[in-house]
Amino acid sequence: MDWGLIFRSTGQAAIGPDACYYALAAAGLNVHIGYTGLLNFGQAAFGAAGAYGLAVAVVTYGVSFWAALFIGLLVSIVLALVLGFPTLRLRTDYLAIVTLAAAEIIRLVVRSVRYTATLGGTDGLQAFGDAFFRLNPFDGGSYTPLEFRPDQVWLLVCAWPLVVVVLLVTFLLMRSPWGRVVKAIREDEDAVRSLGKNTYWYKMQSLMLGGVFGALAGIVFAMSKQSVNPDDYGTRFTFTAVAVMILGGTARVVGPVVGSVIFIGVLQFLDVFLRQAIDAGLIPGWVPIDVNKVAIIRLIFVGATLVLLMIYRPQGILGDRREVAIRDR
């Protein structure tokens, strides 16, 4: 057993690009589901909007990288308006159905043959981040004991502060009267309307804000792979983000980061640990685990852990038990 490798690999994942963009995606969902009570099950669509907004603008239309970043965010805002306009007047379950379906529709349209020339089809689009990586001040060699590649270090040095900004904006908004209105909408929309608040517009603002956070997640994801691919933005993206949000603690400002670091860290730990244990012959013969099944077994383990968490700690890691008790009253 190489414990050095296990911990290095776990640490690398826990502060790596995966943890970073899932934290962003979950921060967006936290605004939607946690604070406003908008059941958005299509966060992947906002991720795709950001990533493809950037990639298509650079690769297909030759826009500069920096302008394309804003185009990515703009696309996610337009998407929020398009999804929100017909659904936000209805009960929140309709939003869940529409966002889930919209995310799949967007994925299927993007991978369709018809638009390959523009959107890249199933091959996706590459080489849109050159302008960003040209600015990389880190040269060859390994950084920190965690052994990131120089371009990864450069991305992380830019992306984690972005996470901090996102959490700061969330914090500032949720302690303000704006946050009070949004949280009140989650509790009972009609009561808020009767008190003179335009709940429709608040929900739209919330959808746009969380959507922009989702778009940032998609952009960091795309930059870490240096490629966009339609199937990266499937339901798995959304539901991993939901799991991360719940794990960290719904409606907690730093919940998404805590959830993401732990979720991705544990996933990686199990992966390397199980492989090492099998190699070292520590798994007895009657346990049906081999190296080929590790990727699945760790997901089973994580799934079971989440089920136990929901039973014994439904408020998540940072949540407040009292709130769950009052909700169940």
């Binding site: 009070r180 949280k183 009140a184 509790e187 009561a191 808020v192 009767s194 008190l195 709130e323």
Partner: peptide
């Protein structure tokens, strides 16, 4: 329609 997870004061300020 009291807003359960807001405090009494937050309810009022709303």
């Amino acid at each position: 329609k009291s807003l359960a997870l807001l405090t009494v004061m937050e309810n009022m300020k709303l």
